[in-house]
Design a protein around this nucleic acid. Structure first.
Length: 427
RNA sequence: GGAGAGUUGGCCGAGUUGGUUGAAGGCGCUCGCCUGCUAAGCGAGUAAGGGGUUUAGAACCCCUUCGAGGGUUCGAAUCCCUCACUCUCCGCCA
């Protein structure tokens, strides 16, 4: 959520930002509604002030036993209340309008973000590793997995529906090994681990920005709860409506959860394999930081995500998303893209964003630091995948496959698989 | 799922015959004093959100908020209704 006062005072800047972002957000409508709203608040509060005073006077009259005078004053107050009730109705409408507008406005990109229309304008920052040259015909995971008996697309459909997958045998173990490896690695670098519910209520989803605008992307239960699309939602909302101590910042959190996405509107994209499915596993990093340090923390978070890929020996590149391609709540986003032979290209495996105060304003996450300022201020929140487990599994299979149909297990994962070095093809 | 008790400021905790109670007291925290340092002690301050004024990184004024929402009333933390959550007992169950 944007700061209403900021929008009010920087209409031109906001207008430009919205166009940079390809967002159709009506600045004029907001300004008009907000102005009306504030005017009504003024009159309502003036009326309330006189009413409060009159009420107090009645109390004194009653105490003094001046019944008649008190009764006369009551009528006057009743009239004021009628006026207030009437104004309150229009005020409620205006407040709803202003809130809805504010809730659907995307975040303002940081000045360092490249301006661009879409994904073609994203800028590559750096690369690591060299994509392997295969001296045999490399297989895509959607062929390799079923042949090895470790990915079962058909039974995923049978059990649930399309875009759900089953992992079997060493595929299931590899998945679990990846999760534990990622959690342990981040844990050893100072991230506190959490295990959180896979379902969340609407306040939680509103706090991180999925609601109200993106409800169609979420699975909803009959009780009005939602399946989480990412652990970011839960890890960030851990501190909703809390005031953190400045001395304990920055906080570095990590958690593993399954993630659920409707993928409404992505029909036809990445339909083969398990790149885009309704349920996938992900290890997520979340940080709470002071405003002045949040962009440094973002760089650090990218390094922590990279570290996983480097330890796994998977080639990747890093890009900065341009204004037109950034997510709703982000002020700046780096994507990590891993090399996938089946795509003959890099594919997103992590997205690390600094949301600055966009989420903390919605979720009321603040911090105090008496040495530096009075009262409390909004913290900055950051989140990043560390990493998407399913896509990582795919990357391992495809990049480490051998001519005989087996797959070498990266060394760092072997301790998590009982020392096993190889996933063998089905006999 | 059934019965009962509860939900007050950063924390603990008073306040239920409705009326200067946004709320006693304590802890914590901030500033000052005192002591050779620390501790103890003394004094002062210390909620959030919103609107407005101004010599505007600060100050002042007003409104709202005592789990949430609604109702009664001139006036509600205090009375009534609905919901959520917590605790205790019972039932059920990984």
């Amino acid at each position: 959520m944007l700061d209403a006062r900021f929008v009010r005072d920087n209409t031109d800047a906001v207008r430009k930002v919205m166009s940079d972002r390809n967002a159709s957000w009506d600045v004029e409508e907001f300004i008009a509604a907000d102005e009306k709203r504030r005017a009504i608040i003024g009159t309502v509060e003036a009326l309330q002030a006189t009413r409060n005073e009159a009420s107090r006077a009645i109390g004194i009259l009653m105490k003094d036993g001046k019944r008649d005078e008190a009764e006369a004053a009551k009528g006057e107050v009743r009239q004021i209340n009628e006026q207030v009730a009437e104004l309150d109705e229009t005020l409620a409408q205006l407040e709803a309008q202003v809130r809805d507008l504010l809730m659907t406005a995307p975040n303002i990109p940081d000045s360092s973000v490249p301006i661009g229309a879409g994904e073609d304008d994203n800028v590559e920052v750096r690369r690591w590793g060299t994509p392997r040259q295969f001296d045999f015909e490399a297989k895509a995971h959607w062929d390799l997995g079923p042949e090895m008996g470790i990915i079962d697309f058909e039974r995923g459909v049978k059990l649930t529906k399309s875009r759900f997958v089953v992992l079997g045998r060493d595929g299931a173990r590899l998945n679990r090994a990846l999760i534990n490896f990622m959690l342990d690695t981040h844990g050893s670098r100072g991230y506190t681990e959490w295990a959180v519910p896979a379902m969340a209520n609407s306040e939680t989803l509103t706090g991180t920005g999925q609601l109200p605008k993106f409800e169609e992307d979420l699975f909803k239960t009959s009780e009005g709860l939602y399946l989480i699309p990412t652990a970011e939602v839960q890890l960030t909302n851990l501190h909703r409506d809390e005031v953190l101590e400045g001395a304990e910042l920055p906080l570095h959190y990590v958690g593993y959860t399954p993630c659920f996405r409707e993928e409404a509107g992505s029909a036809g994209r990445d339909t083969r394999g398990m790149i885009r499915v309704h349920q996938f596993d992900k290890v997520e990093m979340v940080k709470f930081a002071r405003p002045e340090e949040s962009f440094d923390e973002l760089e650090g978070m990218v390094v922590d995500a990279e570290n996983i890929l480097q330890l796994l020996g998977l080639p990747y590149r890093i890009i900065v998303l341009c204004t037109g391609d950034m997510g709703f709540g982000a002020a700046k986003t780096y994507d990590l893209e891993v090399w996938l032979p089946s795509y003959d290209n890099f594919k997103e495996i992590s997205s690390c964003s600094n949301c600055v105060d966009f989420q903390s304003r919605r979720a009321a996450i603040k911090y105090r630091d008496p040495e530096t300022f009075k009262g409390s201020r909004l913290v900055h929140t950051l989140n990043g995948s560390g990493l998407a487990v399913g896509r990582c599994l795919v990357a391992v299979l495809e990049n480490y496959q051998q001519a005989d149909g087996s797959v070498i297990i990266p060394e760092v994962l072997r301790p998590y698989m009982g020392g096993q070095e190889l996933i063998s093809p089905l006999a």
